[in-house]
Amino acid sequence: MNIPTNLSSQPASALDARKQAKLVDAAQQFEATMMQELLKPMQHGQDSWGGDMKDEDATFDTLSSFGSETMAKAISKGGGFGIARKVVSQITSERQQKSEKKTTGY
């Protein structure tokens, strides 16, 4: 998995790097899930021919769902609304503060 440089800091060890990669991935998945919910209303409406969508067309619903999921993931990986970046930044900051408290005793 490629970690976008704008979301990751430079961890000191391989264990920290894996934790950071998992954090980035989880934050991007969270943002993608939120974006998918925002994209859902675009699935329901009219088809490309201008007629009403048929409720019985389960195939279209499934493909549309996969399409919005893929779109949401791509948007999130590309920076999205910045939610993933903010989550990573906040959690990384909190980790650093806890680490500093352990080493300094404050």
Rank of each mutant, 00 (worst) to 15 (best):
M1D: 11
M1N: 09
N2F: 15
N2P: 12
T5N: 13
N6M: 12
N6K: 13
L7R: 06
L7N: 01
S8K: 08
S9L: 09
A12K: 10
A12I: 12
S13T: 14
S13N: 10
L15M: 08
D16Q: 11
D16N: 05
D16E: 13
A17Q: 08
K19N: 14
K19A: 15
Q20I: 07
Q20N: 14
Q20F: 08
K22Q: 12
K22G: 15
V24A: 02
D25L: 04
D25K: 10
F30G: 03
E31F: 00
E31G: 01
T33E: 12
M34W: 12
M34A: 14
M35E: 10
M35D: 07
M35V: 09
L39Q: 03
L39N: 06
L39E: 05
K40Y: 03
Q43C: 07
H44S: 15
Q46I: 14
S48F: 15
S48G: 11
G50H: 05
G50V: 03
D52I: 07
D52A: 13
M53W: 06
D55V: 10
D57R: 09
D57S: 07
T59V: 12
T62W: 08
T62V: 04
L63R: 02
L63W: 11
L63T: 03
S64D: 02
F66D: 14
S68G: 02
E69P: 00
T70P: 03
T70M: 14
M71D: 07
K73E: 09
I75G: 04
G78C: 00
G78N: 09
G79S: 00
G80S: 00
A84Y: 00
R85K: 14
R85A: 15
K86C: 05
K86S: 10
V87T: 12
V87W: 05
Q90R: 10
I91Q: 02
T92W: 04
R95Y: 12
Q97W: 10
Q97N: 13
Q97E: 14
S99W: 13
K101M: 07
K102G: 11
K102W: 12
T104L: 06
